Computed example of a mutant assay.
Amino acid sequence: MRKRNNIYKWGSILSSLLVIVSLIAFNVSGEEKVTFTHIHGLGYTNDGEEIYVPAHDGLRVYKDGTWTIPTEGSKHDYMGFNMFKDGFYSSGHPAPNSDLANPLGIVKSTNKGKTIEKLALYKEIDFHGMAVGYKTEEIYVFNPTKNSQMDQPGFYYSTDEAKTWEQSKLAGIEGQAIALAAHPTKKGVVTVGTNQGIFLSEDHGNNFEKLSITGSVSAVSFGHQNNLLVATKTDEVSLFQIDLSTQESVELNVPDPGEDAISYIKQNPANKDEFIFATHKKDIYISNDAGNTWNQNVDEGVAIPH
């Protein structure tokens, strides 16, 4: 009888442990606990309903106020991640259990990451500095080394899905490049943020004009009304919206991140008043009123329960 009671006792303990493990996997609201090991980009789907973020071990998706981890598709380590109107372009490294080789080169997905198409430089290079036009699909990269399609390091662009590349002259650029963005609808228009300001080109990066925003740029992104979002970090963090038609800039209100800085910023393509930004410390904020107020929904890489 004692032996049978011991069996029941250990069975009860194991059942309790299973319950604890289940509670660890889900937060108190019943939602799955979602974490971000890294953040290497972010962007909206064309309908503005979903936000995709690469998090080292696959994608994270924000929809209807909740972060989830997709169950379909390999959990690749996406770098240089860029959403476009029909999906995303990226570079990076394959998931540990993938049959793909490392690095990925440049890949494209039109089914939200369920599958990816290899476009160029597979097994050759991983681009961290990459930008793609949301509707033009022009690709810009900072190439760190010679490869089969690029004779030397430098700034390159492709207008045919990475089949061929042209090197840009980068005339007019000052300082060390930090951030990069391509215009969503205007071909040839690209911007580079450096530790000495923000620079705009209308000829695929051959010649750049310095814009009025000063300071070290930490993030840059084109909006969807011919505007430019520029985040700077000097003594404090600032976020500006520049009307490219008039060159007038407006400073948006942002939470004080202390020693942190904005790393990525995007505008919803279907809602001009919605913005999202991520920081180097993996905080994520969303504004639904054109940047007047912000709601934090990721805190140091951990999604905040809805």
Rank of each mutant, 00 (worst) to 15 (best):
F142Y: 11
S109I: 03
I125G: 02
A131T: 09
V132T: 04
L104K: 03
L100V: 11
G133K: 02
D126S: 04
L104R: 01
S98E: 07
T110Q: 12
D126I: 01
K123W: 11
I125W: 01
Y140W: 06
G105L: 10
T115K: 14
K135A: 14
V107L: 08
L100R: 09
N143A: 11
D126W: 10
I139N: 00
L104C: 12
K108S: 08
K123I: 11
E137L: 11
G133N: 04
H128Y: 13
K123T: 15
T115F: 06
S109H: 06
T115Y: 07
D99Y: 12
L121P: 03
S109N: 06
K112N: 06
I116V: 14
A131W: 01
L121S: 10
A131C: 07
E124R: 13
E124W: 06
I116Y: 05
N102S: 15
K118V: 15
L119Q: 03
G129V: 12
D126F: 02
L119F: 05
N102K: 14
Y134I: 09
D126K: 04
S98R: 04
S98A: 15
N97C: 07
G129T: 13
L119H: 04
I125A: 02
Y134G: 01
D99M: 13
N143C: 02
F142H: 11
M130G: 05
G113M: 00
V107K: 00
D99N: 11
K118N: 09
K108H: 09
V107G: 08
S109F: 01
L104M: 05
E138T: 15
I116P: 00
S98I: 11
K112A: 11
L100M: 15
E137I: 08
K114M: 07
K135Y: 15
N111A: 12
I139Y: 03
K114G: 03
V132W: 01
P144V: 07
A120T: 09
Y134M: 02
L121D: 01
D99R: 08
T136D: 07
